[in-house]
């Protein structure tokens, strides 16, 4: 039974159109997520350093740290657009 299923799966295309779409959407959000994380890591470290010197910089540090978040939001919008198209 299990073997039969495998044969059926192997005979068709590995990725059909829906699969490609899903993969595209997944990549859009994964890569932008990684990019945001990378950027925020750098800024966050610097912001913590600045806060150690002067606690009053918390507000500014917070804003600077969340700025790259926009990248992943755009990724999310792109992946939703791919999915609904």
């Amino acid at each position: 039974m299990v073997g039969e299923d495998l044969v059926v799966a192997a005979s068709g295309p590995i990725l059909d159109a829906a699969g490609m779409k899903a993969l595209g959407a997944a990549l859009a959000i994964t890569i932008t997520g990684l990019a945001s994380a990378w950027a925020e890591k750098e800024i966050g470290t610097a912001a913590i350093g600045a806060m150690a010197e002067n606690e009053g910089l918390f507000g500014k540090g917070l804003i600077l740290t969340v700025i790259p978040e926009t990248i992943v939001i755009f990724g999310l919008v792109a992946s939703l657009l791919i999915n609904s198209a």
Partner: peptide, 11 residues
């Protein structure tokens, strides 16, 4: 970019 940034509300 600023306007699209508000889509985080739903996200």
């Amino acid at each position: 970019g600023n306007a699209l940034s508000y889509s985080r509300i739903i996200a």
